[in-house]
């Protein structure tokens, strides 16, 4: 199993543990967890796709990673809007805001992890190992080569 696939299984698992470890305030809606669940599923599916070295599998794997990244951003946006709706400065509100910031950090790190995987599978080496041909699509005349 490639390192990218392992990372794609491990990072959502760590994210889930962190989400469970952060003490949840009642005022925080769980909708961000739905985004997380969809993203984690897409990430894992992408990782499974990339286990078989075929051009079509690579394409589907990359699409899954793009969508997973978008879903993590969705989860982050959900938390951002929840924090924005909190206007008070009393201690209870500040505690909720603090928790949201921690949750946002976890979501952001998950986003970075999936984006890193996306970058790694985009490399020429991985594309070639999946039987894809790298073609120069430029219209201009190369300066170097």
């Amino acid at each position: 199993m490639s390192r990218i696939s392992i990372a794609s299984f491990v990072s959502p698992a760590i994210g889930l543990v962190l989400f469970l470890l952060i003490p949840r305030e009642a005022a925080i809606s769980s909708s961000f967890l739905v985004w997380f669940a969809i993203a984690a599923l897409l990430q894992a599916t992408g990782a499974v796709m990339l286990l078989v070295k075929q051009p079509v599998r690579w394409t589907y794997g990359v699409i899954c990673f793009w969508l997973a990244a978008a879903c993590y951003m969705g989860g982050y946006s959900d938390l951002h809007l929840q924090a924005k709706a909190l206007t008070g400065t009393d201690e209870a509100t500040m505690a909720v805001k603090t928790t949201i910031v921690y949750l946002q950090y976890v979501m952001s790190l998950l986003f970075v992890a999936v984006f890193g995987s996306l970058g790694a599978v985009s490399s020429r080496e991985v594309q070639e190992s999946h039987g894809l041909e790298i073609q120069d699509t430029t219209r201009g005349r190369p300066v170097h080569d």
């Binding site: 993590y72 951003m73 982050y76 950090y105 952001s108 790190l109 986003f111 970075v112 984006f115 890193g116």
Partner: peptide, 18 residues
Amino acid sequence: KDAADISWGLPFILLLGG
């Protein structure tokens, strides 16, 4: 404005810093 705040938020910063 929300979209701008979100897109310039933590994921973006951690990605670039990373």
